[in-house]
Amino acid sequence: MRTLSLEEIDLIKKSIIRKNITSAEILSEVYDHYLTHLENLPEDDFKYGLNELDEKFTYNFCKKLQRDQKNSNRREIKTLQKEVFKSYFTWPRFAFTLFFIASISYLGTLIPFKTQVILFIMIPLIFIVGLNFVVMFRTRIKLKPLKNDFSGQSYKINSLTSEYLTLQLHWPITLTNIFLHVPRILGLTDFIPEYLYSFLSVATCIFLVFYGLILFEVFKIKSKTAFL
């Protein structure tokens, strides 16, 4: 095994950049494969080895790897979400679920509607927005070395795991915005009967809290192993 020269590393990077890989997961794997293979070849065989690798990791093959990885990531995160969700209905977590639902339902009968909106909807939403920032920050830090290595690439390098998790975190924020603003735009200010106010705020709170907690746990699990 030998240390590659800066010129050789530059040739490898240029060769990989031509494949337009945007997924950090695939890019790092392909780059490591190139480097490890070429480090094991004598200096004279470098160009031959590089061409050989380029023939294996063609543009289309890399795009396919990226597409498959995207689907795999989605499937994996969805499975994790389901597993975490199920865990809230098995002991000992079920005790928390029961206690939480009972407390929120009881508080819903005591607190006036405006306070309920602040407490039951805004606090979980702030948690979700905060988690979103943490995900973005962590991804930025983890991607920094790779982005520096491939600074000449015109396509933005992104973590597929982070991208999907961020998308999941945006859903409740978008839905809340739609729920708050669309009725106003349409002039439907009193379209929800008053007796449903409490029920709706309690139900929304339960949904948001569990949704946020599930995503937080998925983030905790995936952040140990992925670009997150």
Partner: peptide, 17 residues
């Protein structure tokens, strides 16, 4: 990995991930 048979971890090794 997607089927849950393998798990991955990334690590910085010799100036690369």
């Amino acid at each position: 990995e997607a089927e849950g048979l393998l798990t991955t971890e990334i690590q910085q090794v010799d100036n690369r991930v």
